[in-house]
Design a binder for these strands. Sequence first.
RNA 1: GGCGCUAUCGAAUAAGGGUUUAGUUCGCGGCCCUCUCAAGGCUGAAAUCCGGGUUCGAAUCCCGGUAGCGCUACCA
Length: 518
Amino acid sequence: MERRRRVRFAPSPTGPLHMGGVRTALYNYLYAKQAGGDFILRIEDTDSQRFVPGAEAYIIEALRWCGIYPDEGVDAAGNVVETASARHPHAPYRQSQRRGIYRKYAEELVEKGFAYYAFDTAEELTALRTAAEAEKKTFTYNWETRGSLKNSLTLPADEVARRVAEETGWTIRFKIPENRTVAMDDLIRGHIEVNSNTLDDKVLWKRVDELPTYHLANIVDDHLMEITEVIRGEEWLPSLPLHYLLYEAFGWQDTQPRFAHLSLLLKPDGKGKLSKRDGDRLGFPVFPLRWVNAEGEVSRGYREDGYYPEAFVNMLAFLGWNPGTEQEIFTLDELVKVFTLERVVKSGARFNPDKAKWFNQEYLRMRPVEKLVAEFRAAEGPRVAAFSDEYIGGVLELMRERVHFPTEFHDATSFFFEVPAEYDPAAVAKFWKDDIPAIIPQVRDFIAGIEPFTKEHVGESVENLIRENAWPMGKVMNTLRLFLVGKSVGPGVADMMAIMGKDEVLRRIDKGIATLKS
RNA sequence: GGCGCUAUCGAAUAAGGGUUUAGUUCGCGGCCCUCUCAAGGCUGAAAUCCGGGUUCGAAUCCCGGUAGCGCUACCA
């Protein structure tokens, strides 16, 4: 029987989740949901040195904002499940709470001869590295050098026993076999082969915090949690041979997960991967949510910048994947239906902020007006409380074509809620001259007689009036806009008049005439 | 330096040996619409990294070079 598909997203709480991390989580989620399987969130906090308070909560909140809810690892409130239960037999999901289970696996490897205790101090190794560097070489702890270093392979048995019994001062390293071709398969990249001689004896158990390294904890947890596919970033590809060898050493090959390595997200310009700095420099968010670090440094977030989570997710899905059709707008559920690892692109994806804005604009346009109104009211508070839903809806409907983000509504629609306090001097100079001061009062009186005051009828009537009198269409219309908006840019004059209503329009025109006369 | 991955318009990508004068979207330019700004319609410029090979035929398969990226920690 085919195993139930189970994938995991396993971030390290060393800071806010980067949008590249969100993409990895998204692809894992899409894969799991399409297969009717489980998406697991596991917190890999085995790096006690780099742990950042709040990072875990940030990760969970970011995923929730995106609509990505783990089947395991987090409860309904967004907390990491800490104890095993019928529903979560694989708990806990935080590696720091699983520390008790890794030691025996590390020791098992030593007993079987696949790993060994190493007693070299960090200082000794650093010295070796700098010495090698001076000769333009790289020091590697491997089959060539381990015979002359301090470890359980070289030291007498009784001394090894004594040192290990002391409980501190040792690490466990994996003994990479000599001259073996490690043959691997990647769901995205295909077949890969590497000679084991190019690998080094990676530390599996750390002395400093008495915790397993990523490599050990990861393999053990993936095995214990019955993970079927590992979808992770490209930065892990170089350690894939080690992971294969680890599964082999444990004898877990039959249930070994399949691997898929995702390419990195690259910065919009220049070279290298997308970093926090690029966002600051080019003016776009790199993180899903706003983040303030310990130094008080603020990193903007997509959420706070006015992106809809649906647009953010849609944009992210298309960074390194495409459905093979020309459809670009997909909801999360639609993505679940069409996503395949086969269509994930192998090369790095350069992030394009313009395209991200475009996606948001598309979602803004599709959004039901009622939602727009409710959200606008929530954001504006008392300033717009006196206006009806119908009025606000009309305003937003008219303005949504001209903005990319709902956050832009505040400035873009202000004149609908407040009478212009001043008129753009450049526009005044351009339009308020020649016959215009004489014409506008006539137009004003004409408008006062228009009935019904609908967009179509108002537009047609005013245009006819101007044509019949052979007045300059542009100047008259722009002057009306100037009185309505305060500026010479904005929506169609008839559109605005219909929304504002006759009384308000006349008030504004009268005010304009009175102001400019003096 | 070593090892690995990757390589199509400015960006994201399509084309799975012939359907290709290499398509689409974003961006950029032009035109139309027009009372301004948008939006929309039409349209233009713009790419297969280089060199070999395989083949009747290569963007596509193979080899080499180059470039970019990643890894090369008791970080993940």
